[in-house]
Design a protein around this nucleic acid. Structure first.
Lengths: 120, 120
DNA sequence: TTTGACCTTAACGCTAACGTCAACCATTGA
DNA sequence: TCAATGGTTGACGTTAGCGTTAAGGTCAAA
């Protein structure tokens, strides 16, 4: 598919998609006329990227963890250098921290809302 | 305490603390000589702020959810306008989405690491 | 064949969350 | 008393993640 279709399917601007290409997150093939051509599986990938960006991860990190989110991923095992694995473990731990933190704050907000509603 | 102590206690630069003041997240009192004076409870608040920033929330949102994270918060019930409550519910839902998303990706990373280790 | 929708690259603009001076005042120990 | 340390307010610099023109190529439909 062309960039416009991917754009509407993912709710992502063409500009953002081109930016993701610059950042090596989504690399489309090219048609004879120079147009970008995206495979269907990239829809999910773009949505993944948006979600990860939304949780505060920079493209530099996303680029590193994307290979292990693809399925099937037998091909990507070659990328698994020791440094790569260390990065992954570190980012996984950071995600744990974020999850715990978000959960605590979510609970606090809920508690607050409950107390306010109890007064009404 | 003065800004330097709060800085080292929270691992946050003085510049950032002054920025948080500009953004109305942490408003210290002033000493006779013009120095900022921070109460002890603000240590926790700054750490909260850092965590929320790290999860991708902008200061604009953080400013709105901070009141319901303070304890005791009886005073802050006055701030609970309908718009405020709507914002809180919305942000709580967004936090839910982030948590689910992070959890899924965390699982994918773990799974990948397990598979790689199984080959070693 | 020409309009209109969609594509291309290149380049400048923008906002958030600070970093980094610069120039100056305050406090304290030698 | 004076040098070090740490505080103050600007103000300009930086990076990420795009938005927004600008100037032009492509292609299907009328």
């Amino acid at each position: 598919m062309k960039i416009g279709e991917l754009s509407s399917l993912t709710g992502t601007s063409p500009r953002a998609l081109r930016y993701y290409e610059d950042e090596q997150l989504v690399i489309p093939r090219r048609m004879p006329n120079g147009y970008r051509e995206y495979d269907d599986y990239l829809v999910d990938r773009v949505i993944q990227i948006r979600g990860l960006l939304d949780t505060g991860l920079p493209t530099r990190i996303i680029r590193q963890i994307l290979p292990c989110l693809d399925k099937p991923r037998t091909i990507h095992f070659a990328d698994a250098t020791p440094e790569m694995l260390a990065t992954l473990e570190h980012e996984r731990d950071r995600m744990d921290e974020r999850i715990e933190f978000l959960a605590r704050n979510r609970a606090a907000i809920t508690e607050y809302l409950d107390e306010v509603r109890a007064l009404a």
